[in-house]
Amino acid sequence: MPYLFINQTADSPKAAGFEFLLKPFSEEAYMYRFYLSEDAKKVQAILYDPDTLVYKKMLLDLEDVSQGMNEGKIDKKDVPAPGKYRLLFMVQTENGSLESDEIPVEIGS
């Protein structure tokens, strides 16, 4: 009788596909979207200056985020001035592990 034992799990990313752009047909709001492969205690997106790495703005600070596609909007007044930034995208999973990814972001005028 054939059988298979699996004793390890794949090391897959917990978050993928982060998008941040001006909401279609709107001049007053941005939209964000990302996918989580499992539930998360906390998700943060922090903007930094790409040259000096000086902190600019906490873009997202979400708690108890569900697995799957997550979407939302951010008012334009809550977004920093147009320019190029580095975004640190951090996910704290239910088991307490922390994963992060650094993404270049450009905010248009």
Score class of each variant (00 low, 15 high):
S97Y: 14
E27S: 14
L36D: 03
V79I: 12
L53A: 08
A40V: 02
T9A: 13
S97G: 10
Y55H: 13
K41E: 13
I107T: 08
L98R: 10
E71W: 01
D64Y: 08
D49L: 04
D64M: 06
M90K: 08
Y30A: 05
L62E: 10
I103N: 08
A81L: 13
F25C: 06
E99P: 11
K41T: 11
E27Y: 07
N70M: 03
D39M: 00
Y32F: 15
A16T: 12
A16C: 08
E99V: 12
F20E: 01
S100R: 08
E99Q: 12
K14C: 10
E106D: 10
E63A: 14
K73G: 14
D51W: 00
L98T: 15
L59S: 01
Y85V: 10
K23N: 14
D75C: 05
L36K: 00
A15E: 01
S12P: 04
F25T: 11
I74R: 00
Y48P: 11
V105W: 01
E38A: 08
L88N: 04
L88W: 06
Q8F: 11
F89Y: 09
V105M: 05
Y55Q: 07
E38P: 09
N70R: 03
D39Y: 00
T52R: 06
Y30L: 04
S66W: 01
Y30E: 02
L47C: 07
V65A: 03
G96W: 09
L21K: 12
F18R: 02
N70V: 12
Y35S: 08
A10L: 14
L88V: 14
A45M: 03
I107F: 07
L47D: 06
K77N: 10
D78Y: 07
K84N: 15
Y85G: 10
V105N: 04
E106Y: 09
D49Q: 07
E19F: 03
P82L: 04
Y55V: 05
I103R: 07
A40L: 04
I103P: 14
L21N: 12
F34S: 03
M58R: 06
